[in-house]
């Protein structure tokens, strides 16, 4: 009776130890170029600056912002919670660890789309999942969120909602200041209620 359990214990410990001592798989999986091409044509990798801003304000735990600009620009200003990853180190251990995190939506951004697109291509080729690009990068973000354009003509309600959201977001990021004037609406100062939602699970499940 006891001997049976001793053997099983040794077997179990050896199996577990095996995982620790086995050499790490060095080679990276590369995906089929055809699949990669499909991904390049597909536009679902883009998130708008408004979508990203929403998720920052909601404090979405599944969001991981990856800043691919040079370190000095990152130090001057970066989106809250963003991690600086220089394109050089995309395929280094720290880079793959960062981008390989399960359960996170990795959102790349640079000053424009240029570097982010290239980083996206390289990482997607090495099978990084849930990788997105913030369309337009920091430039677009500044122009949209920080320099809110006043509405022109007779804006629709959705436009007004969007502008008041951006105003609220601006106050969230830079503190108080004159909100951009929206001439036709009396609700301009109202803070847009941010509806918190549980992070959507990729496959649902749970208990």
């Amino acid at each position: 009776m006891e001997r049976k359990y001793t053997i099983l214990t040794i077997l179990l410990v050896v199996l577990a130890l095996g995982l620790v001592v086995l050499p790490k798989n060095k080679e990276r999986k590369e995906i089929d170029p055809k699949v990669l091409l499909d991904g390049v044509v597909e536009r679902s990798r883009y998130l708008s600056v408004d979508q990203v801003t929403h998720r920052i304000i909601e404090n979405d735990p599944t969001l991981l912002l990856v800043d691919v600009r040079p370190a000095d620009q990152f130090k001057t200003f970066a989106l809250p919670g963003a991690i600086n990853l220089h394109p050089d180190s995309l395929l280094s251990q720290s880079g793959t660890d960062l981008l390989g995190q399960p359960g996170k939506d990795k959102v790349l951004y640079g000053n424009s789309d240029l570097i982010a697109e290239k980083a996206w291509l390289v990482c997607t080729r090495y099978s990084v999942n849930r990788l997105y690009i913030m369309k337009g990068g920091m430039n677009e973000w500044f122009n949209t969120i920080i320099k809110v354009k006043p509405a022109t003509g007779t804006p629709s309600t959705t436009d007004l909602d969007l502008i008041s959201f951006r105003n609220a977001a601006r106050q969230f990021f830079v503190g108080d200041g004159e909100p951009a004037t929206v001439t036709t609406t009396p609700i301009q100062k109202e803070k847009v209620p941010v509806i918190r939602k549980a992070p959507s699970a990729s496959t649902g499940g749970g208990c």
């Binding site: 995982l19 086995l22 798989n25 999986k29 735990p61 599944t62 390989g100 995190q101 399960p102 359960g103 099978s127 999942n129 849930r130 549980a198 992070p199 699970a201 990729s202 496959t203 649902g204 499940g205 749970g206």
Partner: peptide, 18 residues
Amino acid sequence: LYLNYLGLIDYSLLYIQP
């Protein structure tokens, strides 16, 4: 972990409880 090591499962597609 063994399946992951052997490349038989994609860990990033598993549902991990938040």
